[in-house]
C-alpha cells in the first residue's frame, strides 16, 4: 500500500519524470530563449558556410564551405577593424572602470545628497544611446560644436576641431562618449561591492595604524576582486557589442577609421546584404564572446557551481 517505491538511486530519466511538473515553470522562459537565441545561434553558424543572395531568398543560397571565413580573415580591412575594436574595447573599458571605481570610492560614505548625486551620475547610463549619440554629435559639431568653441576660447586651438570627420580623432571621440555613457555602471557595481567590505576590518586596520592607501590596498581591494572581475567582464562584453553610439555618430567612418567588428557586421549584412559573410564574421565574434562568457559564469557563481543541484 505504499505510495511510490522508487528505486534507491533513480536514474536521470526517472528523476526528470518525477520532476516533470517543475519544468512547466521554466517552460515559457526556455521557450522564448530557445526561439530567440537557440535558433539564431544555429542559423548563424549554418549560414556562415553559404553564399546568400541579396534578395534574401534563402532557397537560392550556395554552399561555399569555409570560403567566407577565409575571405574575412585574409582581408586587409579585417586587421584594421580588429585593431579598432581592440582599441575601442580596451580604452572604453579601462576608462569607464577607472572613473567608476573612483566615483564609487568617493561616494562610499554617508553625506547629504549622496543618493541624488548617485542618481545624477547614472543618468547617462539610463538614457537612450541614440539620444546620447545625438547630444554628443552636437557637442562635437564641426562648425557650431561647443567643445570646439571652448577649445578655441581657451586658446588650445585657433580653429574648431573636426572631431568626427577626422581619421585621427574619430575613434577617441567615440570612446569619450562611450565612457560618459557607461562609467556609472561600473560605479554602482563597485559601490555595491564596497558595501560588502566589513566596517570592522577598516576600524581594526585603523587601530593597527594603516593609512588610507594601505587600507584600500589591503582591505578594500581583496574584497572587491569578485565584483571587479564581473564588472570588467560585463564592460568588455558591452563594449565589444556596442553598436548604437559608433553607428549613429560615425557609422564606421571616416574611411573606416572608427569601424569596429559590430558595425562592420551590420554593414555587411544590412547595407551590402551579404548575410553569409556577415554570419561568418558573427561566428568569429561569437567565439570570442563565448570564451568571455565562460569566465563570466565562473566569476558570477564562484563556488556555487560546485554544489549539486
Amino acid at each position: 500500500m505504499s505510495v511510490s517505491t522508487a528505486a534507491r538511486e533513480p536514474n536521470v530519466f526517472a528523476r526528470i519524470v518525477r520532476h516533470r511538473a517543475d519544468y512547466l515553470y521554466i517552460a515559457p522562459a526556455l521557450g522564448v530563449m530557445l526561439l530567440v537565441i537557440g535558433y539564431p545561434i544555429y542559423d548563424t553558424i549554418y549560414l556562415s558556410f553559404f553564399n546568400t543572395p541579396p534578395s534574401l531568398a534563402m532557397a537560392d543560397k550556395i554552399f561555399v564551405g569555409t570560403d567566407n571565413y577565409v575571405r574575412i580573415l585574409t582581408s586587409e580591412a579585417f586587421l584594421d577593424v580588429t585593431i579598432n575594436t581592440l582599441i575601442w574595447t580596451a580604452f572604453s573599458t579601462f576608462f569607464a572602470f577607472a572613473l567608476g571605481l573612483g566615483a564609487a570610492l568617493a561616494l562610499d560614505r554617508q553625506f547629504v545628497g549622496r543618493g541624488l548625486l548617485r542618481g545624477i551620475l547614472l543618468i547617462p547610463y539610463v538614457i537612450s544611446a541614440v539620444a546620447a549619440a545625438y547630444i554628443w554629435r552636437w557637442l562635437y559639431h564641426s562648425d557650431f560644436g561647443v567643445i570646439g568653441a571652448l577649445a578655441v576660447a581657451s586658446g588650445i586651438t585657433d580653429r574648431p576641431i573636426n572631431f568626427l570627420d577626422n581619421v585621427d580623432t574619430s575613434l577617441p571621440s567615440l570612446i569619450v562618449v562611450n565612457v560618459w555613457k557607461e562609467f556609472s555602471f561600473a560605479m554602482i557595481m563597485m559601490l555595491a561591492g564596497l558595501q560588502t567590505v566589513p566596517e570592522q576590518l577598516h576600524r581594526a586596520a585603523q587601530v593597527d595604524g594603516a593609512g588610507v592607501f594601505q587600507r584600500f590596498w589591503h582591505i578594500t581591494m581583496p574584497h572587491l576582486k569578485g565584483v571587479t572581475l564581473v564588472t570588467v567582464l560585463l564592460l568588455l562584453v558591452a563594449n565589444l557589442n556596442s553598436f548604437t553610439i559608433p553607428w549613429i555618430m560615425t557609422a564606421g567612418g571616416p574611411a573606416g577609421s572608427s569601424d569596429i567588428w559590430i558595425t562592420a557586421i551590420y554593414q555587411l549584412a544590412f547595407e551590402r546584404i551579404r548575410f553569409g559573410v556577415a554570419s561568418a564574421y558573427s561566428v568569429i565574434l561569437f567565439v570570442v564572446m563565448m570564451s568571455m562568457g565562460y569566465f563570466y559564469v565562473r566569476a558570477l557563481t564562484g563556488k556555487d557551481e560546485a554544489t549539486p543541484g
Partner: peptide
C-alpha cells in the same frame, strides 16, 4: 539562461530577421 548576456545583439540580428 545567464549566458544570454554574452551575446551581441547584432549577431542575432540576421537570423532573427530571417525568422
Amino acid at each position: 539562461v545567464l549566458l544570454r548576456n554574452m551575446f551581441p545583439a547584432v549577431v542575432f540580428l540576421m537570423p532573427l530577421f530571417i525568422l
